[in-house]
Nucleic acid binder design. Structure first.
Length: 777
DNA sequence: CAGTGAGCGAGCTTCCGCTTGACTT
């Protein structure tokens, strides 16, 4: 007989809580949701008032059986799942599946894992909140209905295996719309003028002062006119303003802000951040990493203050409480913070240390005093112009939180010259040393990174901390979008300089349009998005989630019946599904590009079974048309006739090597060189299949041969099929195109031929067992 | 692993949100 069984969601949490509660309590975890809607027939009896059909998830059968047994032997079962909609539902599912009796079941909640919070929770148990559970059921059922009705429409009208959903489809829409903004953006240029001035100070020393004209000049004529004026102008300091200003620290991390900062400061992908954070959490170094709250426990506040006072002194400490402003936040957990502030560093691999360091600094800074700055602005009059030069500087009077941490921005700051300004007074006349005007181009709104997309989704209240990373992966896995670096292009710009009374004009070159780890839509993503917008505009609406969330809140408050809400949504939605199936024809994104000037045959582009391709010629004629795949990054929407015609030049022979032809083409896995029936991939950064030459092709072949050679740890003369190789996940055995893992106890270098055969034998045995197990399921 | 692009039809795909491992070449 167990007196008390406590069930929480996370096993790491269970361990901590058990240590707080003493020997009368057993704490177990259920690993999140234990039941879900069956996948058969939607898992919903639509005609039976949307009655949900729940089944225990395959991977939860074991844990449910274990909990059942423990619950039967327990006096009181404490359901201590998270204090939010999903947590309440998990508690309800547990009470159902474990057949708990109301009198022996207590629901408790805490949103921080501290001894006081847990004790307090145990002293204040409550009953299950069925309204909140119903709000969750409505959420779950709505998502199932949307996902499982829309996706099959896409299978029929566009391509199999595609998907649509309340969250992912909006994520794709954001990317498609941003790409179109970039596509249609026309950069405009204007001129920005910077001057370097000088004067003699009281000691007779020459002192320099840099300043800029705050307005821009629309073109080079205006700019030249202004610079010509400057030749014989007097420059006089007419105004000096010094103003104090303050900067406050950013709040502690939530999942979303952690992902953003880890992306900006450490270059982590969203999923990488979560994997590393999970490790830190399991090791007990940080609090729970999936949270939408910026709240810190009172224990954490005190402890942070102590650490700051000790390390930096009393005046650096300032206790701050932050309010969460994210839409739809449920605040079941604390902010992501170090569990012990005295651990400024931790043991772990490099990524773990770096992420921990970031979390430590951010949290500590959030409890520090603001920085005090002094901003100075010097205005310089130009005697023959109504324009003015302005020099601005910023001096830190007290660094405060800046001592440990400064939040990064997505966009780079302008290149204004901030810093110390020289001592100067009004009425001072200045000489110009040089005045330079730079042509500057306006930029389109930036493409999204994984992290900035998460930020946008969070702002719209779409998705939850536990789903941001999986959503980003899903839209990439479906082939809707992809992540890429783009090298950019060279752009000329004009510089007009005035120095020693002479005006000089130069053309310089800069890199523009460089992209790092940005998300780009693919053709199929664009076609799916346009189809969904055409037929299901309300679901794709950026406010759809926010508006259904309002209704879920009403259900949670007991003011709205969940089946009525679902019915009001489903009836018109389902009618639109039927209509889209009946009326729309298959979408391929087809576009006519024009006629081939050589043959006069039509050229068109569309998406097919194997992706987007161009077609030369009519398929209704006797002569078969020619086909060619689009290159990565080429869009159906923007490809020109000229670019399409280029594609038909592939595959092409660029020369020969070792007596065999070198053929360049584009296949399923991208551009390649084929030589002696072996394929060598082109490097996507540097190589273009349309322009690559013989010497570069040979280079690629030799490069790959070199790598192949290094991959071989061991080979055996008596069987050339058998090799020990080093791969992405360490050493492995390759035999007749099959791979086998090497058991940990073996040194890969010292494996004998017989050892390898034995490992292969075992591996094949295991594989057969696995196949058998699968069939039985 | 890299030549495809017609059409038929069986059987499959798919959602969001909670949680961790197992596993990869």
């Amino acid at each position: 007989m167990i007196e008390n069984l406590v069930i929480v969601e996370s096993p790491a949490k269970a361990k901590t809580i058990e240590s707080f509660l003493g020997k009368d309590f057993i704490v177990k975890s259920c690993f999140g949701h234990v039941r879900d809607l069956s996948k058969k027939n939607f898992g919903i009896e639509i005609d039976n008032n949307y009655s949900p059909q729940y089944i225990v998830s395959e991977d939860k059968k074991k844990i449910v059986a274990e909990l059942k047994k423990l619950a039967k032997d327990s006096g009181v079962v404490w359901l201590a799942t998270d204090e939010d909609r999903e947590g309440e539902a998990i508690a309800w599912h547990l009470s159902e599946i474990l057949k708990l009796s109301p009198e022996n079941t207590k629901r408790i909640v805490f949103h921080e894992i501290t001894k006081d919070a847990i004790r307090n929770a145990v002293d204040n148990p409550r009953k299950l909140n069925k309204d909140l559970v119903n709000a969750q059921q409505a959420r779950r059922i709505l998502d199932r209905l949307v996902g499982f009705e829309l996706s099959p429409v896409l299978w029929k009208k566009i391509q199999p295996k595609l998907s649509a959903g309340r969250v992912q489809s909006v994520a794709v829409r954001l990317l498609v719309e941003r790409e179109r903004e970039v596509m249609h953006f026309n950069p405009e240029s204007k001129f920005k003028v910077y001057g370097t001035f000088s004067f003699s100070d009281e000691q007779g020393e020459k002192v320099e002062l840099k300043a800029e004209v705050t307005n821009h000049f629309p073109d080079s004529d205006e700019t030249r006119k202004f610079l010509n004026n400057c030749k014989d102008a007097d420059f006089e300091v007419v105004d000096i303003i010094t103003k104090p200003s303050r900067k406050s620290p950013a709040p502690p991390f939530t999942t979303s802000t952690l992902q953003q900062e880890a992306s900006r400061k450490l270059g982590f992908s969203v999923s990488q951040t979560m994997t590393v954070a999970q490790k830190l959490y399991e090791a007990g170094f940080i609090t729970y990493m999936r949270t939408d709250s910026v709240n810190l426990s009172s224990l954490a506040l005190v402890s942070a203050r102590n650490t700051i006072t000790q390390e930096f002194g009393e005046k650096y400490a300032k206790t701050r409480k932050y309010k969460t402003k994210a839409k739809g936040a449920q605040e079941a957990h604390e902010a992501v913070r170090p569990t012990y502030f005295q651990n400024e560093t931790i043991k772990g691999n490099r990524s773990e240390q770096r992420l921990y360091n970031l979390i430590w600094k951010r949290t500590i800074a959030s409890q520090m005093s603001e920085a005090q700055l002094e901003k100075t602005t010097i205005t310089i009059n130009i005697s023959n112009s109504d324009k003015r030069f302005v020099a601005s500087g910023e001096v830190i009077k007290f660094d405060g939180f800046l001592k440990v941490y400064m939040e990064s921005k997505d966009e780079e700051l302008d290149d204004s010259t901030k810093g110390m300004l020289p001592l100067i007074s009004t009425g001072q006349f200045l000489n110009y040393e040089s005045i330079n005007a730079y042509e500057r181009f306006s930029t389109s709104p930036p493409r999204y990174t994984e992290a900035s997309l998460v930020k946008k989704l969070e702002e719209l209240g779409i998705g939850r901390p536990s789903t941001y990373a999986p959503t980003i992966s899903t839209i990439q896995q479906r082939g809707y979008v992809f992540k890429e670096d783009r090298p950019g292009f060279n752009r000329n710009f004009t510089v007009i300089s005035l120095s020693e009374g002479k005006l000089e004009e130069k053309t310089k070159t800069e890199k523009a349009g460089t992209e790092k780890k940005k998300l780009f839509p693919k053709n199929i993503g664009i076609i799916v998005n346009d189809f969904l917008i055409e037929h299901f505009k309300d679901i794709l609406n950026y406010n759809f989630t926010a508006s259904v969330e309002k209704e879920f809140d009403e259900i949670a408050a007991g003011k709205l019946d969940w089946t009525e809400m679902i019915d009001a949504f489903y009836k018109p939605f389902h009618a639109k599904v039927e209509k889209s199936l009946a009326t729309s024809i298959k979408k391929t994104g087809e576009r006519q590009l024009g006629k081939d000037p050589e043959t006069g045959e039509p050229v068109m582009v569309r998406i097919g079974k194997y992706g987007p391709f161009v077609q030369l010629g009519d398929s209704s004629k006797d002569e078969k048309p020619r086909f060619a795949s689009l290159l990565k990054g080429q869009l159906i929407e923007t490809i020109t006739l000229e670019e399409a015609l280029e594609l038909f030049k592939l595959p092409r022979t660029v020369g020969d090597f070792e007596g065999k032809d070198l053929i360049v083409g584009v296949g399923r896995f991208g551009p390649y060189v084929r030589h002696n029936n072996k394929f060598f991939s082109l490097k996507k950064e540097t190589d273009d299949p349309l322009t690559i030459n013989k010497s570069r092709a040979i280079e690629l072949i030799e490069e790959k041969r070199e790598i192949e050679k290094k991959r071989i740890i061991k080979s055996f003369p008596n069987d050339p099929d058998l090799k020990v190789l080093i791969g992405r996940y360490g050493p492995y055995i390759s035999y007749k195109k099959k791979n086998f893992r090497i058991p940990r106890k073996n040194e890969p270098e010292s494996l004998t031929f017989e050892d390898c055969l034995r490992i292969i034998e075992e591996g094949q045995k295991k594989e057969r067992q696995k196949a058998k197990g699968k069939r039985q399921k």
